[in-house]
Amino acid sequence: MALNTPQITPTKKITVRAIGEELPRGDYQRCPQCDMLFSLPEINSHQSAYCPRCQAKIRDGRDWSLTRLAAMAFTMLLLMPFAWGEPLLHIWLLGIRIDANVMQGIWQMTKQGDAITGSMVFFCVIGAPLILVTSIAYLWFGNRLGMNLRPVLLMLERLKEWVMLDIYLVGIGVASIKVQDYAHIQAGVGLFSFVALVILTTVTLSHLNVEELWERFYPQRPATRRDEKLRVCLGCHFTGYPDQRGRCPRCHIPLRLRRRHSLQKCWAALLASIVLLLPANLLPISIIYLNGGRQEDTILSGIMSLASSNIAVAGIVFIASILVPFTKVIVMFTLLLSIHFKCQQGLRTRILLLRMVTWIGRWSMLDLFVISLTMSLINRDQILAFTMGPAAFYFGAAVILTILAVEWLDSRLLWDAHESGNARFDD
């Protein structure tokens, strides 16, 4: 018995066209964080690309023209004298008006014999932002004059995390709450300039795509075929072959399989920071003279006294001054041990922890910024005066060393310790 099946006739004509040209192939790229070699397709503007294995951002879609970056830099340069030299806060102490600005706080630190601690604050609040705007201006002028731009481009990517104007702005709020127990506070004209400078700096850093600047100024022929001998440069993120001198053909720094002496430098910085954190938390970090009496505060006791007036601000200072430094030390110690013992479990967790400490590390400088600003506000000789204690130097040095330890660690070593050939990683 035959089955009668109805015929289905399409209502619209289906047209099949042959592909007349070869589909576009992607360029081969190595991930600078996990060293995976993959094919990167062509990316349009405002599109980002991520590593298929570790999800690290390979290409950032946010990109401004150099002219727009230069305009932002010149605007920031105009704001800087007002943000640093004009009063941020006014207080009335014992019937006398006192003005506080950024430069005055750094000068008070240096004047009291601790120039190293003052230079830490100076670099993060004044030096690094000033280098940022002058570097962008150098790129703008240098591109037109045919100057060598490689050193500036190499420095810009590392400079971003040292620009800490946003953290200093939080420190202004913390210092205001600490001082309000002794005097009446009012915002100064410099505060508005400083807030504007923070906003412009944040926007500029978020749109400063150094890798795209490398592509514009020093374009290189990408690798179009897969080759395990391809290496990625950690300076400019170019994937290719080393030249005859073993250097990256684009930025001219040595092109090595792994960062040289990464573990040794990381261990040295980490152990030194552990040693410095002990006096930083045991010795007094601030000293207040009130009517001839002397009151010393460690980091913890200062947080407890701050909690009596504002528990939320005390929580912020606790996280930045105690929780973050010790968390960074514990995480980095764990990561280094996992590399030495070739741990194969929990790779995803370790990668996330490394990215976390990379982002939060700079916030530990908050305590030094609060001390710097408070020193310029309260300084009335023996009637009422505020000065920093010996722990300030140890704390600042420990924070900087932990930042350097994270920067010096080559994250690809975590993958080397893991089993080879993993296309995915999980716990």
Score class of each variant (00 low, 15 high):
Leu354Ser: 11
Gly302Leu: 01
His261Ala: 12
Leu257Lys: 12
Met36Trp: 06
Ala307Asp: 02
Asp410Phe: 00
Ala314Lys: 04
Leu414Asn: 07
Ile185Gln: 06
Ala223Thr: 13
Ala2Glu: 04
Ile116Lys: 14
Arg97Tyr: 02
Val16His: 08
Phe393Ala: 11
Trp84Phe: 11
Val399Tyr: 01
Leu165Asn: 11
Ile400Lys: 03
Trp415Asp: 08
Asn44Asp: 06
Gly293Thr: 10
Asp381Trp: 06
Met120Asn: 02
Met109Thr: 09
Met103Asp: 02
Leu69His: 09
Asp243Arg: 12
Pro222His: 14
Ala392Gly: 04
Arg350Cys: 11
Pro32Ala: 08
Tyr50Arg: 06
Arg245Cys: 12
Trp408Glu: 06
Phe82Glu: 06
Glu419Gln: 10
Leu323Gln: 06
Gly315His: 14
Ser262Arg: 04
Ala320Leu: 15
Leu278Ile: 11
Tyr218Pro: 04
Ser65Phe: 04
Thr117Trp: 01
Met103Lys: 06
Ala223Asn: 12
Arg25Leu: 07
His261Tyr: 07
Ile199Leu: 12
Ala196Lys: 03
Gly61Ser: 13
Ile185Lys: 01
Tyr182Thr: 13
Ala268Met: 03
Ala128Pro: 02
Gly20Gln: 06
Val203Tyr: 09
Gly396Tyr: 01
Leu23Trp: 06
Val170Gly: 15
Ala2Val: 05
Gln264Asp: 05
Leu205Gln: 15
Val203Asp: 03
Ala320Asn: 01
Lys57Asp: 04
Arg380Ala: 01
Val125Trp: 01
Ser321Thr: 08
Asn209Asp: 10
Arg17Ala: 08
Trp84Met: 09
Leu205Ser: 15
Thr110Glu: 14
Pro81Val: 04
Leu352Asn: 11
Gln220Ala: 11
Ile339Arg: 11
Gln108Tyr: 12
Glu22Leu: 06
Met1Trp: 00
Pro24Arg: 06
Cys251Leu: 00
Arg424Cys: 07
Pro129Ile: 11
Asp416Trp: 11
Asp27Met: 07
Ile253Trp: 02
Arg348Leu: 13
Ile371His: 00
Leu290Thr: 03
Ala397Arg: 00
Val399Cys: 13
Tyr218Ser: 12
Phe326Glu: 06
Val189His: 10
Thr387Ala: 06
His207Ala: 15
Trp140Gly: 13
Leu3Ile: 08
Ala70Gly: 12
Phe369Pro: 00
Ala385His: 03
Ser286Thr: 10
Ile43Met: 09
Leu139Asp: 01
Pro242Glu: 12
Leu263Trp: 13
Asp243Ile: 10
Gly113Lys: 14
Gly173Asn: 02
Lys12Asp: 06
Leu404Ile: 14
Thr15Cys: 08
Phe217Cys: 15
Gln55Pro: 10
Met388Phe: 04
Gln264Gly: 03
Asp60Val: 07
Leu366Asn: 07
Gln55Ala: 10
Thr298Ala: 15
Arg355Phe: 14
Arg226Val: 14
Gly315Leu: 13
Ala320Arg: 00
Pro52Trp: 05
Phe217Ile: 14
Phe386Cys: 00
Leu37His: 06
Val210Asn: 15
Arg216Ser: 13
Arg225Gln: 14
Leu368Asn: 09
Gly361His: 04
Leu40Pro: 06
Ser135Val: 02
Gln345Phe: 14
Tyr28Ser: 07
Gln7Arg: 06
Leu77Trp: 07
Arg256Ser: 14
Gln29Asp: 06
Arg260Ser: 06
Ser411Val: 08
Met388Leu: 03
Thr298Trp: 06
Arg424Gly: 11
Ala175Leu: 01
Ala56Tyr: 07
Pro279Trp: 14
Glu211Arg: 15
Ile126Glu: 03
Gly188Val: 05
Leu40Asp: 06
Val170His: 11
Pro6Phe: 07
Leu336Asp: 01
Val179Ser: 03
Phe194Asn: 12
Gly20Val: 07
Thr201Cys: 13
Arg350Asp: 08
Arg225Tyr: 13
Arg221Glu: 14
Val174Gly: 14
Leu37Ala: 08
Leu347Cys: 14
Trp140Ile: 15
Leu213Glu: 06
Ile383His: 02
Glu22Met: 08
Leu205Phe: 10
Asn379His: 03
Met155Ile: 04
Thr117Val: 06
Phe393Ile: 08
Ala280Gly: 09
Leu23Lys: 08
Arg250Phe: 04
Leu271Pro: 01
Lys111Leu: 03
Leu282Met: 13
Leu213Asp: 08
Leu197Glu: 07
Gly315Asp: 01
Met375Asn: 01
Pro249Ile: 12
Tyr218Thr: 10
Leu208Val: 14
Ala312Thr: 15
Arg412Gly: 02
Thr298Pro: 14
Ile322Thr: 03
Asp227Glu: 14
Leu409Thr: 07
Pro249Gly: 10
Ala307Lys: 15
Val232Cys: 15
Asp114Cys: 01
Ile185Asn: 03
Ile177Asn: 04
Glu419Ser: 12
Gly95Gln: 05
Tyr28Leu: 10
Ile299Pro: 05
Val275His: 07
Leu366Trp: 01
Leu132Ser: 07
Gln382Gly: 05
Leu277Cys: 11
Arg62Gln: 05
Ser376Trp: 02
Ser321Leu: 00
Leu276Met: 12
Trp64Ile: 13
Gly113Ile: 14
Thr5Phe: 07
Leu191Asn: 03
Ala392Glu: 01
Leu336Arg: 01
Leu93Asn: 01
Arg30Ser: 05
Ala2Arg: 06
Gly292Ser: 12
Ile378Trp: 01
Arg226Trp: 14
Phe386Ile: 00
Met120Tyr: 10
Tyr28Asp: 11
Arg150Asn: 06
Ile106Asp: 01
Arg226Ile: 15
Arg259Leu: 12
Leu337Ile: 12
Asp114Lys: 04
Leu66His: 10
Met103Gly: 03
Ala115His: 04
Asp367Ile: 00
Arg225Lys: 13
Cys266Leu: 07
His46Leu: 07
Thr374Gly: 02
Lys178Glu: 03
Leu368Asp: 01
Asp35Asn: 08
Ile378His: 00
Val317Gly: 01
Asn209Gly: 15
Val331His: 03
Glu407Arg: 07
Val210Glu: 12
Val16Glu: 06
Ala223Glu: 14
Asp367Thr: 00
Asp416Cys: 11
Ile316Thr: 15
Met388Arg: 04
Gln220Leu: 14
Leu234Ser: 12
Arg380Tyr: 04
Asn422Gly: 12
His418Leu: 10
Glu215Trp: 08
Arg250Asp: 01
Phe341Lys: 12
His237Thr: 12
Trp64Thr: 13
Leu200Ala: 09
Ala73Met: 13
Lys265Ser: 07
Met155Tyr: 06
Pro390Tyr: 06
Ser176Cys: 12
Asn422Ile: 11
Leu336Lys: 05
Pro284His: 10
Gln244Met: 13
Asp166Thr: 15
His184Pro: 05
Cys34Leu: 00
Ser39Val: 11
Ser364Leu: 00
Ala398Cys: 10
Tyr28Ala: 08
Val324Ile: 10
Ile167Lys: 03
Ala320Cys: 15
Ile330Gly: 12
Ile126Phe: 15
Ala223Val: 12
Glu407Lys: 13
Ile98Asp: 02
Ile106Ser: 03
Ile287Leu: 11
Leu270Ala: 11
Ile91Lys: 00
Val163Gln: 06
Gly190Phe: 01
Met388Gly: 06
Ala423Thr: 15
Gly146Pro: 03
Ala398Phe: 02
Ile403Phe: 03
Asp427Pro: 06
Ile403Gly: 02
Met120Lys: 01
Asp410Arg: 00
Ser262Val: 06
Ala18Lys: 07
Glu407Cys: 09
Ser376Arg: 08
Ser65Gln: 05
Val357Gly: 03
Gln180Ser: 13
Gln382Glu: 03
Arg247Phe: 13
Phe238Glu: 12
Asp63Ala: 14
Ala385Arg: 04
Gly292His: 11
Ile43Ala: 08
Phe341Ser: 12
Leu145Gly: 02
Gln7Ala: 07
Ile98Val: 05
Leu132Gly: 07
Ala115Lys: 01
Gly315Lys: 07
Glu157Phe: 13
Ile360Pro: 00
Ile253Asn: 06
Val102Phe: 10
Trp140Ser: 11
Val125Tyr: 06
Val102Arg: 00
Gly105Arg: 00
Leu263Asp: 09
Ile14Val: 07
Ile96Asp: 01
Gly20Arg: 07
Arg59Leu: 10
Gly173Met: 09
Met332Glu: 09
Thr201Asn: 08
Leu336Thr: 11
Glu21Pro: 08
Leu132Thr: 06
Ile303Trp: 10
Val331Gln: 07
Gln112Phe: 07
Lys328Asp: 00
Cys343Tyr: 15
Leu130Thr: 12
Leu373Ser: 04
Gln29Arg: 08
Ala83Cys: 03
Ala392Thr: 04
Cys31Asp: 01
Glu419Trp: 10
Gly171Tyr: 00
Cys31Pro: 00
Asn310Cys: 05
